[in-house]
Design a protein around this nucleic acid. Structure first.
Lengths: 339, 339
DNA sequence: CGCATTTCTGCAAACGTTTTCACATAAATC
DNA sequence: GATTTATGTGAAAACGTTTGCAGAAATGCG
C-alpha cells in the first residue's frame, strides 16, 4: 500500500506538497498540483484514515448505535439517516448492541476508542455509564425515536402516547369496545404506546380489563404470534387488537389465522410504524405511520449542525404521525366471532 | 479524552508499562499491573484505535460490502456474520454501496483508506477496478452468496441453478405446466435462478414461452408487484409462479390478490431465500431455503482462517439448500382461474 | 529599480500508540 | 559467591498524515 512519502518521492516534491495538492489547499503551483493528482490517479493512492484522524483529531464519521435485532422500521430509518449523513459529508459507523449490560459496555468502549464526530442513538441503552459518557466526554449526541427526560440531549421522535391514542380512537370509532393490546416490556415506546392504549380506553369510558393486554420480551414476529396466542387462551372476547409495532401485529394476525379466525372479519388489527411490507400483506395492515424520511433527515441535519457548532446540544423535535387505514379493520358490529 | 501519557503520569510509570499492563503482556510487576488496571477502570481509559492501528498496521476489523438496499435475506445474513466474527474477535465495518459506478468507487476509496484485516463481499460489484483491488492489494476476501469464475477468491454460496430447479420441480410435480417467472436483471443469482427455471421446464419437456417471464430492475416488494402485474396483462394462463426472491414473491402475491385471484387456489407461488416473514404470511410462502446460519458462520470462519494465514485465498464452499413447503402452492388441477 | 506583498515549498513537530533495545534488578544455578 | 537466566522498566523510534513556520521565489506597485 502506497504512502504519501512514496508519492512524494515519485513526484519529486515533499509530502507537505502532496498533502496540500490532495486536499485542494491553496499555494500549490498549478502544474505541480496537476502532476500530483495524475500520480494519485495512477497509483490509486488514498490517504490513510488512521493517520489522518490522528492528527486532525476527528474522523468525519458519525456513529449509529442500534439494537442488533433492529426491526424493519429501524432498518428503513438508519438507511435514511446514512444517506442523509452522506450528503453532509459524513461517514457512518454502526454499533449493533444487544440487550445486555455487557454488550452495552463493549459498545461504549468501542465508541470511546474512536474519535467520532457525533453519535446517533437509535437504541435506548440502559447502562448508566453509557449516558454518563454521552452527557460528558462524548461528541454531539442525537437521540432518535425516543427521548430521555432530565437529560439535555437533542432528540427526534413522535408523540408516542398521542399516536397510540389515535390508533385506538380509530378502533373505538369503529365501535370496538373490547380491544386487546400486545406490547413489549423493553424500550420506553413500549410503555408509552401502552399508555396511549389505556388513555384512549379511559377517554371512551371503557372499563379496562387486565386480561386484554400482554407484554412480550421483544418486538419480533414470533413474539407477536405468541402474545396473541396467550390472549386467545384467555378468551376475553376481543373484537380488535392494538399492536405496539407492525411486526407484533403481523405475528398476531398469523396467530389469529392459526386459530381459524379472520382479520378483519372476526378481529380488527392496528399496528404501529408503517413499515414497507404492511401494504403488501393480506390483509394490508392498518397502522400508525411514523415519518421515517423526515425523522432520518431531521436527525442527520441536527447532527450536522451540532458538529458544525451551530446549535446547542439539547432540544426536542417532535414530528407528526399519521393513521394509515388499510384492510385489517372493520366496524365492530361486523365482527362475527370475537377472540 | 485521556491518553496513555496522562495515565502514565497518574500511575507514576512510563507509557510502555501502561501499554504492557493494558494489553496483558508479560513482564509487568503484579502490583503495578493491578494499580494500572484500577486506574484504567477509574478513568475510563480506552486506547485510541487510530493510534493503535497506525503502529500495528491492522485494525482487527473486517469490512462487509453490502447493497444499500439490502433485502431481508441479506439482513439476516449479515447479522449472523457480524455475530460470528465478533466471536472470532473481529469488529465489523459496513460499506453500503448503491448500484452505481460512482458509489462503488467511493466504497473502494474508503476500503483502501482503512487497514482492514479482511473484506467480505455480500454484494456483487461491477466495476473492474474493484475486483482488481480485491485480487491485488487487498486483505483477504470472501465472497458470500455468489462466486466469480476465473477469479481466485474464496466464496460461500448455494448452487443457485440447482436450487431454482428444485423449486420448479416441486411445482411441476404438482402438475403445473404453465409456470411464470419473476426475476431481476441485476446480480448473477438473478440469471442463475432464471437458468434453473428454464432447465426445469426443459427437463419436463415443457415448451418455454417468453410471455411467461419478466425481469425487473430490483428485488423489492414493489417490483414483485409490478412484475406480476405485467405478467397478468399478458394473460398467459399461468397456474403457478416462481419468484427469484421472497420479496418478489410477496409483491407478486399482492398483485394477484389485487387482480382478484387467490393464492394458492388460482395460482401457486414459490419464492426463494426463506426469510423470516415467509411463515407469517397469508398464505405462508413455499420457498427455497438458503442456510443463512451456516452461510454466515462458514463465511466468518473462513475469513478468520484467512486472516490467521491458515488458508489459501481461494476455494469454493457450496452449501445445501432445502425446499420448504408451506401454503402458497396447490396441485395444478385444483387451479380454478389461471392468471 | 527597490520594496512590499503574495505565492510556493520543505522542514519539523505533533497526534497516541506499540515494541525493540538497553539496562537494572531479582531469581536460579552451580 | 559468581555466573547465568528470568523479570521488570523506560527511552526512543516508528506508523502516515497535516500544518505552523521560515525561507525562497515570484509578483505587484510606486
Amino acid at each position: 500500500m502506497i504512502s504519501i512519502k512514496d508519492l512524494a518521492r515519485l513526484a519529486g516534491v515533499s509530502p507537505s506538497t502532496i498533502s496540500r495538492a490532495v486536499n485542494g489547499k491553496k499555494y500549490v503551483k498549478p502544474e505541480i498540483r496537476e502532476r500530483v493528482l495524475a500520480l494519485v490517479k495512477e497509483t490509486g493512492y488514498v490517504p490513510n484514515n488512521a493517520a489522518r484522524s490522528m492528527v486532525l483529531q476527528r474522523t468525519f464519521t458519525v456513529g449509529i448505535v442500534i439494537p442488533d435485532t433492529f426491526n424493519m422500521f429501524q432498518r428503513q430509518l438508519f438507511s435514511t439517516i446514512e444517506r442523509s449523513l452522506e450528503g453532509f459529508g459524513y461517514r457512518t459507523m454502526f454499533y449493533f448492541v444487544k440487550w445486555e449490560a455487557e454488550s452495552e459496555l463493549k459498545c461504549l468502549r468501542r465508541l470511546k476508542a474512536e474519535k467520532l464526530d457525533g453519535i446517533i442513538m437509535l437504541h435506548e441503552v440502559t447502562h448508566p455509564s453509557f449516558y454518563e459518557y454521552l452527557a460528558d466526554g462524548a461528541p454531539p449526541v442525537v437521540l432518535c425515536t425516543f427521548s430521555r427526560e432530565g437529560l439535555t440531549f437533542h432528540s427526534v421522535h413522535v408523540d408516542e402516547v398521542a399516536a397510540a391514542k389515535a390508533g385506538m380512537a380509530h378502533l373505538i370509532g369503529l365501535g370496538h369496545r373490547r380491544i386487546g393490546l400486545v406490547s413489549g416490556i423493553h424500550f420506553s415506546f413500549g410503555a408509552q404506546r401502552a399508555e396511549g392504549y389505556r388513555a384512549a380506553l379511559d377517554a371512551a369510558g371503557i372499563d379496562y380489563d387486565e386480561n386484554w393486554t400482554v407484554f412480550v420480551p421483544s418486538y419480533t414476529l414470533e413474539e407477536g404470534r405468541l402474545g396473541m396466542k396467550r390472549l386467545l387462551e384467555r378468551g376475553a372476547g376481543l373484537t380488535a387488537l392494538f399492536a405496539a409495532t407492525d411486526e407484533l401485529a403481523i405475528g398476531a394476525v398469523r396467530a389469529l389465522h392459526e386459530a381459524g379466525l379472520s382479520v378483519p372479519d372476526d378481529v380488527s388489527v392496528v399496528g404501529f410504524d408503517d413499515i414497507d411490507i404492511t401494504e403488501y400483506l393480506a390483509p394490508a395492515l392498518t397502522t400508525i405511520r411514523q415519518p421515517i424520511q423526515e425523522m432520518g433527515g431531521k436527525t442527520a441535519a441536527i447532527m450536522s449542525e451540532l458538529i458544525a457548532g451551530e446549535k446547542k446540544n439539547e432540544g426536542s423535535t417532535v414530528l407528526g404521525f399519521e393513521l394509515v387505514v388499510r384492510e385489517s379493520r372493520r366496524p365492530a358490529e361486523a365482527a362475527r366471532r370475537p377472540a
